[in-house]
């Protein structure tokens, strides 16, 4: 759709369900995927709660959108940066998060994890390497 390829970072710092930001952020990511830009997602602070396993919204009546994160690979959104310190502060490890995978077409469609666990310092590097930072 466009000649220009920019680096887009979607910054997620809020937990799901209590407010709509996580859900509507995901909607932007899905639409944005059609524009063939260089897309990354950052999950830090309470944003790491978006990726946890076992979310069940039946009794609160809200839509459970957690499965959508697992579909991101089909949209070629394959860089989900998760901040290690944010997990640790919240008593979480990688095992508490969903498996989110993509098929690497450059490697015989091998299934690889989209989640890239990085330190706070590395997250700062990722942020400083962007053209457009959209925060939710």
């Amino acid at each position: 759709m466009s000649e220009t390829i920019k680096k887009f970072l979607y910054v997620n710092r809020k937990a799901p369900y209590g407010t709509i930001y996580a859900q509507e952020s995901l909607e932007v990511v899905l639409i944005g995927a059609a524009f063939d830009q260089d897309v990354s997602l950052a999950f830090l602070d309470d944003g790491v709660f978006q990726l946890t396993k076992g979310q069940d919204t039946k009794e609160i009546g809200l839509k459970n959108f957690s499965a959508t994160y697992r579909a991101l690979g089909d949209y070629e959104v394959t860089k989900l940066y998760v901040e290690k310190e944010s997990l640790e502060e919240r008593g979480l490890t990688l095992d508490d998060l969903q498996n989110i995978e993509y098929e690497d077409e450059d490697d015989d469609y091998a299934e690889k994890s989209s989640i890239r666990l990085i330190s706070r310092a590395e997250m700062a590097e990722v942020m400083a390497d962007q053209d457009v930072v959209l925060s939710f």
Binding site: M1, V28, I31, Q37, V132, L134, S135, F136
Partner: peptide, 19 residues
Amino acid sequence: GLGQLIEMGIQADRTITFG
């Protein structure tokens, strides 16, 4: 549509969010 947001990000020199 939301595509207008992405297009804005591509075309603008700086994107700034107030929220």
